[in-house]
C-alpha cells in the first residue's frame, strides 16, 4: 500500500486514559483509546498503535505527530508537544466552528476555555490542584456507591431531590457521602447533589473567563449525562454535543495542529 504522506496524528496521554486520533485528508480516519498506566510513554505509544492498527498504517506513514496531555512532556514518538488547552480548543473548533466556550473535564483537572473563530485560545482557567470536580472524583464516588462510573450520570438524573453536598474535596466528600447514606438519604439524590456541587464549582471557573455561545463539553466526564445536565443548569446554557467520543477531543485537536505544523515546516503542501 502506498500513502501520500497525508496522515497526521494526535496523542493525548491523560491521568486516566490515553487517546489517539489519526487524520487523513482532514477527516478522522482512526482512533485509539485505552486506560493509561504509570508509564506515560508506553501509554501514549499503545494508544497510537491502537489507532495505527485500526487504520492499517505504520508509524512511518504518519507525517507529523503532536503529543498532548500530561504525558506530552515525555513523548519521544511525537514531533512536537502542545498543551491540552490549545488542543481541546482546536479539536472543538474542528468539529464545531461556532464554539466559543469549552468545558473540559478530565481525569485530574477541569478547564474553562474561551476560543475565537479560528479555534485560538483567548482565555482559560483551571481548577485548583486538588481532584475536586474531576473524573477521579467521580470514580471515587462510583466506588462509594458500588456502581459503574458510566452509570453515575443516569442515576443522578433519576433523582427526585437534590441532597446538598458541602464539599468537593475528594476525601471529605467521600466521608460526607457515607454520613448521608447512614442518615437514610437516597443514593440517586446524593449523586444528584454531587453533580450539582461540581457544576457550581465549574461555574466559578467561568466567572473568571466568561461564557459565550456555543458551549462545548469535552473530556471523559463529558460522557456523563447527569454532569452535562447539571452544568447546563448551573451555567444556564445549552451544551453542544460532540459527534465523536468527547474523550478524544484533545487528541483530535493535537492531530489538527500536527497538520498545521507539517504545513508550516514544509512537510506537507
Amino acid at each position: 500500500m502506498s500513502f501520500s504522506g497525508n496522515f497526521f496524528a494526535g496523542v493525548d496521554v491523560g491521568s486516566l486514559a490515553a487517546k489517539s486520533v489519526i487524520l487523513k485528508d482532514g477527516e478522522i480516519f482512526a482512533t485509539g483509546l485505552l486506560k493509561s498506566g504509570v508509564n506515560s510513554v508506553e501509554s501514549g505509544l499503545s494508544a497510537l498503535n491502537l489507532a495505527l492498527d485500526a487504520a492499517g498504517l505504520k508509524k512511518e506513514d504518519i507525517t507529523y505527530i503532536v503529543g498532548t496531555g500530561y504525558g506530552r512532556v515525555s513523548a519521544p514518538y511525537a514531533n512536537k508537544a502542545v498543551t491540552e488547552i490549545t488542543c481541546h480548543a482546536k479539536g472543538a473548533n474542528y468539529l464545531h466552528p461556532t464554539v466559543r466556550t469549552i468545558i473540559d473535564m478530565g481525569g485530574q483537572d477541569c478547564k474553562a476555555i474561551r476560543i475565537d473563530e479560528d479555534g485560538a485560545v483567548v482565555d482559560f482557567a483551571m481548577n485548583d490542584k486538588c481532584a475536586a470536580g474531576t473524573g477521579r472524583f467521580l470514580e471515587v464516588m462510583a466506588d462509594v456507591f458500588k456502581v459503574k462510573l458510566e452509570d453515575l450520570g443516569a442515576i443522578a438524573l433519576s433523582a427526585t431531590d437534590t441532597v446538598p453536598m458541602s464539599s468537593t474535596c475528594t476525601v471529605f466528600a467521600e466521608s460526607e457521602t457515607i454520613s448521608l447514606v447512614a442518615r437514610g438519604e437516597k443514593p440517586e439524590n446524593i449523586l444528584n447533589g454531587i453533580h450539582h456541587s461540581i457544576a457550581n464549582r465549574i461555574a466559578g471557573l467561568f466567572s473568571r473567563v466568561g461564557i459565550a455561545s456555543d458551549v462545548f463539553f469535552s473530556g471523559g466526564v463529558a460522557k456523563n449525562t447527569g454532569m452535562k445536565s447539571a452544568i447546563e443548569q448551573a451555567l444556564k446554557v445549552t451544551i453542544v454535543r460532540p459527534e465523536i467520543d468527547p474523550q478524544l477531543i484533545g487528541a483530535l485537536g493535537a492531530a489538527v495542529i500536527a497538520r498545521s505544523f507539517a504545513k508550516k515546516e514544509g512537510l506537507w503542501a
Partner: peptide, 28 residues
C-alpha cells in the same frame, strides 16, 4: 514542588496563546 506540572501546563498554554496570537496567520 507539588504543583510544578500544573503550573507548567498553565504557563505553557499561556505562552502558546500569546505566540499563536502573533502568528495566527500561519496557523490553522
Amino acid at each position: 514542588g507539588s504543583d510544578f506540572e500544573a503550573i507548567r501546563t498553565r504557563v505553557e498554554a499561556f505562552i502558546e496563546m500569546i505566540k499563536s496570537k502573533k502568528e495566527i496567520a500561519e496557523l490553522v
